Each structure stands twice: as structure tokens, then as C-alpha cells.
Amino acid sequence: MGRFRIGYRTLKTAVGTAISVYIAQLLQLDYYISAGVITILCITTTKRGSLTVSIERLVSCVIGLGVASVFFELIGYNPVAVAMLFLISIPLSVAANAARGIVTSSVIVLHLYTEGQVSAGIWMNELAIIFIGIGVALIMNLYMPSSEKSLAQDQLSLEDAFRKIWEEYANYLRFGDNIWDGGEFSEAAKIIDEAKGKALRDIDNHFLRDDDYFYHYFRMREKQFSVLESILPFISSIDQSVPQGHKMADYMDELSDAVSPGNTAGYFLYRLDEMKLEIQQMELPKTRHEFEIRSSLFYILYEIEEYLLIKKMFKPDPKRTHTISGKRLNRQKARRNK
């Protein structure tokens, strides 16, 4: 059984629905309870989402009222008119990119069917219900808790996982098999997947700015993560007695220490070119085993280059980079003190 809890969206929905019904009832509107239903349907997880769905519901309701007025007056208030109404109003709503408003529109137009007539007073009543329901939902959705602190924490956790992976790669190249269970791979994959969704919701909670730093950051790390995964089988194929393997291990230790939001790719690409040149100047392989090791070394260097180029293309936010780097230093100090 799941844990019972009341989230901020549930709270906003409950309060907003009560306010809508209260206002509509205070104004003595017929079908005042429908204002609360519209509020429930218009409160979403983001500000932009709420505004978009509210506009769709408004457009669909106006289309539905217009079509219903025509068909009910021409055909009469009977099931045939209801069928004709939906056959026309639903495609019109879809054509107007207001498909999500069809359910709300259906509730509103059936009020006309219940009344058995069309008049200016009934139109005003229905429009008032619509505007109250939508208006209260938009006001309630003005407050959205910021995800920035949570995303910054995800960033730190992901960088810790990347750092551990590089450390373990280096350890394998030096010492061979170890007891590492590779748990950081599943941890990193989970963080990336959840953080990207969280970052997209955060973007949709800003009307006046497109703050997409975190989304692009986690997309960048997702691409780098694919590189880390592709390297794994080639790391395990290298004999730890190979001198170049030890040098590569030292290089990976440096990469581990440099995992951060800042961009140090230029320095590591330069160092990578030095390693490539050194391997190219080695004697040609004499056995199949030496050839396979040489191939694995070159493949790993190629993948590391891809890893670094992905980071080089990323544009860090100086303000956030400074903040995250400070938190990272505090974490490193804490680990050293343990």
C-alpha cells in the first residue's frame, strides 16, 4: 500500500475547486458546480501547461456553445440534435487545436439541452462558469515550487556517480578485477531520466524566460553516459600489465577529479592527443593478443575524445557553475575528513 500524502497540486485543486464553486454560487449561477469541475481540469503540473489547457477549454467551449445553439434551434432538443452537435463540434475543436477542451465543452453544451432553450442569459451563465473555473485555476497555478535546488542536488549526485565510474575504470587498468558492482551505472541512468523530466517541468513554470540550463546539462550528461557504457567492455579486455594501460589509468583519475559543471575539455583533449601519439609510436603488435589490446586502447581513446567533445559543446552557466563547484568542494572535504 502506497504512503498517504497530500501534495501541493492536490491542495491547490481542493482549494481552487471550493473557491470556484463558492464564487459561482455567490453569483447565483445555474450549474455552479461545473465551475469547480473546470478548475479541477485546468490545474496542471506547470504554469504553461495550465495556461495552454485553459485556452483550449475556452476555445472548445465557445465552439460547442455556438454549434449547440444552431443545431438545437434548428433540429430541436432531442438525441438526434445531440448526435449532430458532437459530430460537428468535436472535429472543429480538434481543428482548432483545442482537443483537450472537448470534455469540458460537452458538459457546458448539455446545459443548453437541459434548459431546452438558447438565450443571451443562458450564454452569459455558461460563459461566467467557464471564466470562473479557468480564472481560479490560473490563479492557483501562479505558485509552483522551484525545482532548482532539487536539480542542483541531482547534478551533484550524477557527478559523484561519473567520478566513481572513472575511478573504477582506472583501478581496473592498474589492478585487474575488483569488487566493484557497477551500481553507479544504474544510479546515473535513474538520475538522468528523472532530472530531465524535472528540468522540462521547470522550464514550463517560467513565462518570461527560457531557463533551460539544467535540461541541456542533463542531456549532455546523458550522451556522455552512453560513452561511459560503451567503454566498459573494452576496459575489461586490457591486460593490467600493459604500460599504456597504467598511463591511461592516471589520465582517468584526472578525468574523475575534473567532473564538474565547468568546462575543462580543452586541457584533456590536448593530453589525449599526447597519449594517441605515444601509442602510435609504439612497436607494431607481434601477437594477436597485443593487436587486440592495441585496438582496445585506440577505441577507448576515441570514445574518451567523444566524451570530451560532448562536454566542450556544452555552455555552462557561470553563476550555477560557481555554486555547484562550491558544493562539490564541500563534499570532497567531507569525504576526506571521514
Rank of each mutant, 00 (worst) to 15 (best):
Q28N: 12
M248G: 09
R335I: 06
F207W: 14
G64M: 06
S89N: 09
M252I: 09
D30Y: 05
L277E: 14
T264L: 10
T13I: 15
P285L: 06
G262M: 05
W166V: 03
T17E: 03
N97Y: 07
F86I: 15
A188L: 10
R163C: 09
I6E: 02
Y169H: 10
Y169K: 14
Q25P: 00
G101Y: 01
G266T: 12
G266Y: 10
G36E: 02
V107F: 11
G182C: 09
S237P: 06
L29Q: 11
I75S: 10
R174Y: 09
G7T: 13
T114H: 14
Y169V: 08
G2W: 01
T17R: 00
L85C: 12
N337C: 01
T104K: 03
V53N: 09
K198T: 11
S296D: 13
T10Y: 05
F234L: 14
M248I: 14
D177Y: 01
E184I: 10
A98H: 00
S226A: 11
E184W: 11
S325E: 13
Y267M: 13
A334I: 02
L110V: 12
N125G: 08
A128P: 03
K315A: 01
E278W: 09
N337I: 01
S60R: 02
E290F: 03
D239R: 11
M282T: 07
K12W: 07
Y215N: 00
K333A: 10
A99N: 05
K149N: 15
Y22A: 14
H216G: 00
H206E: 12
P145Y: 08
A195R: 02
T46P: 09
Y299K: 13
G133P: 11
H111N: 12
Y215D: 00
S93N: 08
T287R: 02
L151F: 06
V103L: 12
S230K: 13
P318C: 07
T13V: 14
D30S: 13
I108F: 10
P261K: 04
G326R: 15
L208R: 11
K149C: 07
Q153T: 14
P145T: 10
A189E: 15
E222R: 05
G16Q: 02
A14F: 08
S105Q: 08
S105I: 05
R331Q: 14
E290W: 02
A137N: 08
Q244W: 01
S236T: 14
Y215I: 06
R5A: 08
I238G: 06
R163Y: 02
T287N: 03
Q244C: 03
Y213N: 01
Y32V: 03
F314N: 00
I235R: 13
P243A: 02
R174F: 06
V67M: 08
G326S: 15
C61F: 01
V70G: 08
L173Y: 03
V15E: 10
K327N: 09
L110P: 01
I192D: 01
L41K: 07
I310P: 00
K47Q: 12
N97A: 03
V37S: 05
A265G: 07
R5G: 07
G182M: 09
F291P: 02
V118W: 05
P91D: 03
I40G: 04
A14W: 00
R100K: 14
G135R: 04
E56S: 02
L297W: 04
I165E: 08
A265M: 06
E148S: 10
S236G: 11
E254H: 11
Q332A: 06
F207D: 04
E159N: 12
Q240C: 03
Q25S: 13
R331A: 02
N178L: 00
